[in-house]
Design a binder for these strands. Structure first.
Lengths: 129, 129
DNA sequence: TTTAGTAGCTTGCAATATGCAAGTGACTAT
DNA sequence: ATAGTCACTTGCATATTGCAAGCTACTAAA
């Protein structure tokens, strides 16, 4: 495992929950990860998600996720220049966290889109496990 | 399942991840849940956790968690009056979210306390899946 | 060759949330 | 009477968020 972007404990405590929250603990970061797991790739695609992330926060979160080695960015075409964001292995490994939230949300927040409904639209997020 | 405290979707979107984050998406709430899963029960025990939650935020988070039906509060003794907080089933069902974060943190943030070390101190958080 | 449009941002600023310290009220123990 | 603990609340400075507007590079249409 390459360790370059895996910052060692610098946060509030050496608890893995606390350290994860130092990186991911806000209302937007994991929604960006969700969108990436759903196959969205570009800045404007993220902006179109129904929660409506403010554009400055999207830019800032993408930078932090890149700095943390969770996301990487590439040009996928020149003329006109277009960029694509992708999850690294470290980012894809957040899938169990999101799946646990989906299961919990479905069980306790009536009206949420179910895991089955998500599977129908976006099999790769939810299948297996 | 009693449904009284399970507020239906009122948030940013009907996505279960987004709805979960509306409730839990900050740097402190899931640390309180962690402490409860570790068996801590009182206000002052939560304050002693190494991350050092500010006392006003602890009070506010406990109220929100109670309002959401994730935590309940009881007097466990009179003379002097003492209070204990406990997770409800809804709260205990957040365990998979925390376990997923522990696994991810252990894999990607060097120096975090491992699941095995946690198991040695607090078997009930971590044992079984 | 102006004009309009899209992608991917940045900037400014008001509103909200957080962090810190100090204070409060009920109680007990000395 | 004094000190100490538990469980908070209050005030205020600082940090983060949310909203709107602007900006740069590019393309496509008139």
């Amino acid at each position: 495992m390459i360790d370059s972007e895996n910052t060692a404990v610098t946060g509030r405590s050496p608890c893995p929950v606390s350290c994860s929250l130092d990186l991911l603990g806000d209302k937007w970061t994991l929604l960006v990860v969700r969108d990436l797991l759903l196959g969205k790739k570009t800045y404007t695609e993220f902006l179109k998600s129904p929660e409506g992330i403010p554009t400055n926060l999207l830019a800032e979160r993408l930078k932090r996720l890149q700095a943390a080695g969770i996301v990487d960015k590439s040009r996928y075409q020149e003329r006109p220049v277009r960029h694509a964001y992708h999850l690294t292995e470290k980012g894809r490994d957040l899938r169990p966290v999101l799946l646990a939230m989906i299961n919990w949300g479905n069980k306790y927040i009536p009206g949420t889109v179910t895991r089955a409904q998500i599977a129908a639209m976006a099999p790769h997020l939810v299948e297996g496990e």
